[in-house]
Amino acid sequence: MTEAAKKITKEELEEEFDDWDKRIFSTGCRDEQLRMNDCYYDNKDWRVCKKEAAAKPATASAASTENALSPDKSTPQASSLPLNESDPSRVDWSRSFHGLSQEAFPKEAAEVLLAPIDPQSVEIKPDGIVYMPEIWYRRTLNKAFGPGAWGLAPRGETIVTDKAVTREYALVAHGRLVSIARGEQDYFSKDGIPTASEGCKSNAMVRCCKDLGIASELWDPRFIREWKAKYGREAFVEHQVSKKRTKIWLRKGDSVQYPFKETTGAGARSVGP
Rank of each mutant, 00 (worst) to 15 (best):
T75H: 07
E226R: 14
G253Q: 09
S79N: 00
D21I: 05
L69H: 09
R30C: 01
R245S: 13
T59I: 09
Q33P: 00
S270Q: 08
L114W: 11
F260G: 01
K230H: 12
D254N: 14
E111D: 15
C200N: 06
D42Y: 10
Y187F: 15
T264F: 03
T2Q: 14
S64W: 12
A110D: 10
S216P: 00
Q77E: 11
K125M: 13
L81H: 02
K244Y: 12
G148F: 06
N67E: 13
A235Q: 14
D87S: 04
F188P: 00
S61L: 04
Y40T: 07
R47D: 15
I193V: 11
A53E: 15
S121W: 05
W249V: 05
A4G: 11
K107M: 06
E226I: 08
K230W: 03
L83G: 06
E134I: 05
S86D: 14
S80G: 00
I193K: 03
A5M: 12
E52R: 04
L218T: 03
E217S: 03
G265V: 09
Y169S: 02
E14R: 15
E217I: 06
S255H: 06
F145D: 01
K73A: 12
F188T: 05
R167G: 01
A60W: 08
Y137V: 04
R155T: 03
A181I: 00
V271R: 10
A110L: 12
W136A: 15
V237Q: 02
S242M: 06
G267A: 10
F236D: 09
N142T: 14
P119M: 07
R30W: 09
T9S: 15
N67D: 09
Y169A: 02
G128V: 07
K210T: 05
W150M: 04
I214E: 01
V91R: 01
S101T: 14
E103S: 11
D42G: 04
K125G: 01
K210S: 02
Q33W: 11
R251W: 04
P76N: 06
A235N: 07
G265Q: 11
E262V: 05
